[in-house]
Design a protein around this nucleic acid. Structure first.
Length: 353
DNA sequence: GGTATTTGACCGCA
DNA sequence: TGCGGTCAAATACC
């Protein structure tokens, strides 16, 4: 697809600006959390969280709004990864019409889909599943797919029953690299991650990948760095990879953003990904992993939409923070933004580092 | 005992 | 008719 970046360059620039501010706030928040005993810092943390929520909301709105969104690959135009259907956006409602009769398949998923490539969870790359995406999923099926080496697993949101959340995802290990997973998301999450019902049920058995939004994390720092270790969203001309374990060529940390400068940059923050990858950059994005399916030519994945989704998930999680900030903290801190990308030529690169 | 996962079967669509 | 998506019983796990 033609780049068409000029048409929405202004909106993108603003988005970059907003995200930079978010990152700066997150960094400050992270610093405050390092001194939890300081009562003043709690207040500051709350203010920072408030600002972060506001900024992310604005960013999400920008990303979703007309001209910018027009630059994104509409989900309906995204071909499936491997013969999967191309669900069309079911305007107006993400709610699937839950089947009235059993075993009746709904007309092939008509709501929006997003495609991402996800690195295996853990540091070895031999994990059973992709890195956590911040949501709670329940596996409901697995199929061998024609022409694919690995079966495709089907997940739906854990809150489907309790809250009617329509989100589903399909996870399939890539043929080429067993440490990478192709993930296709269908539907948006309408669930509230902190609902009591989910907390009660979800905690009983560890899901394939832990879900930060649902974990009670007495130590916000651990939560911050936990997801940081696992999630990387990179889009653009190179790749769309989420997850941290995959060894990959380093990516240049954004330098244009003040928040990224200096040795204490979050890009160099402790992360199992970075520390476990034999000197590989903590920003594990594989530049050569583009292929034709990841947003390079219009056949690609969810790209910014995915980022928006992830952002929204994180944002909404923050929005549900209990009064005691230290009880639940969504790792927004981990969200980096590659400002080196060219607004006119490529999709932006975001990182959960 | 309750919940999540596994897996064979069913069903709709192309 | 084949393939992909989902259901639901059986099983495993905590």
């Amino acid at each position: 697809m033609a780049d068409g970046g000029e048409s929405c360059g202004s909106g993108r620039a603003r988005l970059v600006s907003e995200l930079c501010r978010v990152q700066d706030l997150v960094r400050r928040l992270e610093l405050q959390l390092r001194a939890p005993s300081d009562p003043a810092s709690v207040d500051l943390c709350r203010r920072l969280v408030h600002d972060i929520i506001a900024l992310t909301d604005r960013s999400i709105s920008m990303a979703r709004s007309g001209d910018l969104a027009a630059h994104l690959l509409p989900a309906a135009h995204q071909p499936p990864l491997s013969g999967a259907p191309s669900p069309l956006s079911d305007a107006g409602s993400d709610q699937p019409s839950f089947r009235a009769s059993p075993k009746k398949r709904k007309a092939t998923a008509r709501w929006a889909s997003q495609q991402v490539r996800v690195a295996a969870a853990g540091t070895g790359g031999a994990a059973e599943g992709p890195a956590d995406d911040g949501h709670s999923w329940r596996k409901y099926g697995q199929k061998d797919i024609l022409g694919a080496k690995h079966p495709r697993a089907y997940y739906r949101c854990t809150h489907r029953n309790s809250q009617g959340c329509p989100a589903t995802k399909q996870v399939q290990r890539t043929d080429g690299d067993a440490s990478l997973f192709d993930v296709v998301y269908h539907g948006d999450h309408t669930c509230r991650p902190n609902s009591s019902s989910s907390a009660a049920t979800g905690a009983r058995r560890a899901p394939p990948h832990p879900h930060p939004q649902q974990q009670h994390n007495p130590h916000a720092q651990a939560a911050l760095q936990g997801l940081a270790a696992r999630l990387t969203v990179a889009t653009g001309t190179d790749a769309a990879i989420i997850g941290g374990a995959t060894a990959a060529a380093p990516m240049t940390p954004p330098e244009s953003c003040p928040a990224q400068r200096g040795a204490a940059s979050p890009w160099s923050m402790a992360s199992p990904v970075g520390s476990d990858s034999n000197g590989v950059s903590p920003c594990p994005v594989a530049p050569g992993y583009c292929g034709d399916n990841w947003g390079c030519d219009g056949a690609g994945g969810g790209d910014l939409q995915e980022v928006v989704s992830a952002f929204a998930a994180v944002s909404s999680g923050v929005a549900h923070l209990p009064p005691a900030l230290e009880d639940e903290l969504i790792p927004l801190e981990c969200f980096g933004f590659d400002q080196s990308f060219d607004m006119g030529n490529a999709m932006p690169s975001f990182f959960y580092q």
